[in-house]
Amino acid sequence: MDDTETLIRRATVAVNSGKPDEAQRLCEQGLARDPGDPVLHHLLAAVLFSRGVMAPARAHIDVSLAKRPNNAPARLLAARIARSEGQFDAALLHLDAAIAAGPQREMFIEKARTLDMAGLRDQARGAWQAILKVIPGHQEATARLGLLAWEDGDPATAAKLLAQATATNAPASVWFNLGLARQDLRDHRGAASAYCKAFELKPDHAEAALNLGISLQEVGGLDAAMDAYGKAYRLRPQLFGSIAMALTSASHGRLWLDEDQLRRALGG
């Protein structure tokens, strides 16, 4: 029978190999023999967290931390678990303890994310700016600062930052936010390009299709706009009112007197 150290090693290999079932079995086997082992509790918490099983994950990481309160990786995992449960104050306490125990870049990024999610805008902005000073061009920091600038009513700064964030592979959300900033600047062609990319990356992004239609309509591409509106409508029929309003209120629009006819046109 394997000893605890061997089980820990095998469980770690299983975690790193993407075999959560095997990792969980090995951790549970080890804890049945040695219920207080902090490493096994840490590994099992990580496996459970990856599966979205939050309460047991939290219980296991708490046991691990009770034995090793200054273990930075355990603090980091505890912070992620707490944040996923909306316990932002607890998450920040864990992160501060992790940073004090052994500061690493990842911890500062996690703290910035947590401040952002907690709605602590000024602190989050400062944290993201600090990350950019240490890691110039950091995509997530640039994108988050761009969104914060847009939310503050500064679309020019937002568009600049978000364009920088899309210089390397960026998720649909960043392209969508770039579209919003460009739209506010009345750069409708640039906005359409950004929304098109967002929709390409996330084909179920109904809002991207809707805003793509609005941007295309603004530059006179009504047929292309109708195609985008149709995609938005088929993804989310509740957007019909927004589409109808856009069609009748934009500078290049079309008046639809028959609602059923418009629904049929959008339904394709």
Rank of each mutant, 00 (worst) to 15 (best):
S64I: 04
L65D: 06
L65S: 06
A66H: 04
R68P: 02
N70L: 06
N71I: 01
A72I: 04
P73D: 06
A74W: 01
R75L: 14
R75F: 02
L76N: 07
L77K: 02
A78C: 08
A78G: 09
A78R: 02
A78I: 12
R80M: 09
I81S: 03
R83H: 08
E85R: 09
G86H: 06
A90N: 07
A90V: 15
L95K: 02
A97C: 05
A98K: 07
A98V: 06
I99E: 03
A101M: 10
Q104I: 13
R105S: 14
E110G: 03
E110V: 12
T114S: 06
T114W: 11
L115K: 10
L115I: 15
L120I: 15
L120G: 11
L120T: 15
D122G: 13
A127R: 05
W128T: 07
W128P: 03
Q129P: 05
A130C: 07
I131G: 03
K133T: 12
P136S: 09
P136G: 11
G137F: 12
E140K: 14
E140N: 12
T142I: 09
A143L: 13
A143D: 14
G146A: 11
L148P: 01
A149Y: 00
T157G: 07
Q164E: 15
N169T: 14
N169S: 15
P171Q: 11
A172K: 05
N177R: 10
L178D: 05
R182K: 15
Q183C: 07
G190L: 03
A192P: 01
A192S: 04
A192G: 01
A194N: 02
A194I: 06
